[in-house]
Design a protein around this nucleic acid. Sequence first.
DNA 1: ATTTAGCACTCTCCTGTTGAGAGTGCAAAG
DNA 2: CTTTGCACTCTCAACAGGAGAGTGCTAAAT
Lengths: 353, 353
Amino acid sequence: MVSTTDSSQLSERSLYLFKALVEHFIEDGTPVGSRTLSKDSNLNLSPASIRNVMADLEDLGLLHSPHTSAGRVPTAKGYRLFVDSLLRVNDLKSDEVQKIAREMAPDNDYSSLMQRTSSMLSNITQLAGVVMLPRTTQSKLRHIEFVSLSTNRVLVVLIVNDREVQNRIINTDKTYTTSELQQISNYLNDIYAGKDLTAVRASILDELEKMKEEVNQSMQSAIEMAQMAFNNDGTQNEGDDLLFSGQTNLMDVEELCDVDKLKKLFETFNQKRDILHLLEQAINADGMQIFIGEESGYDVLDNCSVVTSPYEVDGEILGVLGVIGPTRMHYERVIPIVDITAKMLGVALNLKN
Amino acid sequence: MVSTTDSSQLSERSLYLFKALVEHFIEDGTPVGSRTLSKDSNLNLSPASIRNVMADLEDLGLLHSPHTSAGRVPTAKGYRLFVDSLLRVNDLKSDEVQKIAREMAPDNDYSSLMQRTSSMLSNITQLAGVVMLPRTTQSKLRHIEFVSLSTNRVLVVLIVNDREVQNRIINTDKTYTTSELQQISNYLNDIYAGKDLTAVRASILDELEKMKEEVNQSMQSAIEMAQMAFNNDGTQNEGDDLLFSGQTNLMDVEELCDVDKLKKLFETFNQKRDILHLLEQAINADGMQIFIGEESGYDVLDNCSVVTSPYEVDGEILGVLGVIGPTRMHYERVIPIVDITAKMLGVALNLKN
DNA sequence: ATTTAGCACTCTCCTGTTGAGAGTGCAAAG
DNA sequence: CTTTGCACTCTCAACAGGAGAGTGCTAAAT
C-alpha cells in the first residue's frame, strides 16, 4: 500500500467536493453527476468547474465512472480517504446507546450473551453482524468430572476458564462404578485443577511413562482415564468460534442483489474460514479496523466493507466483533455502533469474573 | 382435502401421459407442450390428441398453463398425485448408500452426529437439509454437579438423558466451598438421579414448603441450590432444536431465484418457528411425509416441497429430518435418501445407548 | 488564471414495433 | 376416437428511436 493518498495533496475545495460526493452517493446509491453536486454543495460553482475537479479526483483513483454518462462513484481508495480523513462520526443518540446497553445486559449465560451481541449488531445496523468468540489459547482447567453412562461408556465434563463447559464421551475398557469415578475425578482435580490444558496434556503423557513402573491401581485408572479425556482433538471444532447474524439483511442491498454473488457471499459466511482470517488480522491492529471493498483481499467481499473492533477485558484482547455490509454503508453510524458494542461487551464480560 | 384425485378416475393413458409430463418437467424445468410430449412418450399419438388429454388434466386441477402458448406445468395437486400414485422410487446406488453410511458413522459426539446428518442430507441432494433434534419431553436427570466459580457464583452442570449436558450459572447468596458443593450435589444426586426433570421440579417446590419447618442446615442449602438450578426456564432456548444446512443450495434453483422470495425463505429458516411447526406435523404421521408447495400452508414455501421422515430408536420416535427444495425436485431420488438417512440415524443413535 | 457557457458526443434506459416460435383450442375430416 | 388444418394468442428476442443524463473540450468571460 504505497500509493496512500494524502489528503493534503488535494486542495481544500477538492476534498470538500469529494466528501459531498461520497455522502451523496452513500445516501442515494446512484452515481453522482456534476450538476447534482453543483446544487448539492453550497459552493457556488458551475457544473463545469466541478467536472474539472471530478476529473482530477478520478485521475487520483478516488472516483470511478461506471460509463460515460453516469456520474461518478467512489472507489475503494476513495472510501478509504473518506473514512480516514473526512468522515465525521456521529455521536449515537442516547436512546440508541440505551438500546444497545439493554440488549447487552450482563447475563450469566455466556454463549447467549455473545449470540445476542451479534444479533443486536445486525438489528441495529440492518447489516450482517459477526462476533468472533474468544480464542481459547490459554485454557485453564477448572474442574473435571466423570459420569458413568452405560457399560464401558463414560461422560467427561471439563470446565475450562470459568465459563466454558466441554463434554465428551469416552469408551473405557472396564465399567467403572460411580464411586470409582468419583475417586478418579477427585484425584485429577487435585493435581490438575487450575493448570493450563496443554500443560495438563504434557503432564499426562509423562505420567503414562512413569506408570509402567508403578503399581498403584487406582492411580493407574485415573491416568488412563485422563489420557482419554484430554487426548481428544484438543481444541473444539474449528468452526465454532464465529457467530453470524442478520445475513439476510444483505439481501436487501442493491449492490449485492445478484443471486450469484449473494450465494458466494453466504457460502463464505458458512465456511467461516475466510472471515476468520480477516478478523484475525483485525485482532492485531489495535482499535477499530475497517476493510473496504477489495482491500480485504477476498473477491467475495469486493463490494463489501467490514467494520471491526476488538473487545477486551482488563486490557487483554479476547476477540473481535463487527459488521459486514456494502461498501456503500453509513460509516458515520456503523463505526460508533461497532465501537461502543465492543466496549460494552468488554464490560459485560468483565462483570462475569 | 376433500378433492382428492383418485388415480382410478383417470384413464390409463391419461395417467401415463401425466406421468411423462411431470417427469419431463422435473428434468427440464420448462413447461411441456403437446408436441414435446407426443415425441417424448412412445405412444404414437398426435399432439392434438395429447392436447385433449392435457385439457382434461387441466380441468382436474393437475396441470396449469403459465400462459396461452407455454405448455403445461404440474400443480401442487398434480405433484401430489404423481408422488402418491405414479412415482417409482429408485433404489439408491450402493455407493450412495455407502456414502451416507460413512457420513453417519456412529460417533460419541451426539451433536456432531446430528450436524453431520443435516449437512450430509444437503450435500447429497444439493438441496437444504434439516434435522429436528429429539424433543426433550421426558428428560431423566442423570447427574447434577456444582462447581464454584467465584464469589457467589456457582456453575451447575446437569446431565440429562445420558447425552445432553446443560450448564447454567447461578448466583448464590453465600459462597460455598468445594466440599460443601460436593455434599450438596451428592445429596441431590441421591434423591433425584434417574427421575424425570418435571418431577424433580415439582418435588423441589414441595421440599421448599416443608423446609420452613425443618432446620437441617445443609439440606436447606441443597434444596435452595436445586431450586435455582432447576428453576430456570425449563427447556433450553426454543430455537436450538433445528439444524439447517445447505440453504445456499436453494439459491441455484431457478424457481426461487427471486431475491425477495429467497430472503423471505431464509428468514423463515432463521426464525425456525414455522418449519418447526411443519416438522411437528410430520412427527405424528407415521413414516415419510411430503409437503408439496401450498399444501404446507406457509406462503413462503409455495414453490417448495418438504420431504420428511421421522427417526426412531427402539420404536420410539425421537425426531424428524428431511430435505427442503423446490416442488420441482427429483422425488425419486430424494425420497429414498431421506428415508434411509432417517433409518441410519436411528441406528447410529441406538448404538450409543 | 480561473471559471463558465456552449456544444458535440456518448452511453444508458425506456418504449414501441416487429417477426419468429411455440402452443393452444376448435371444427371438420378420417 | 383420432387426426389434420387453421386461426389465434402469447412470449421472447431483436431492433430502432428518442429522451435524459453526463461528459470532455474549447472558447469566452471574469
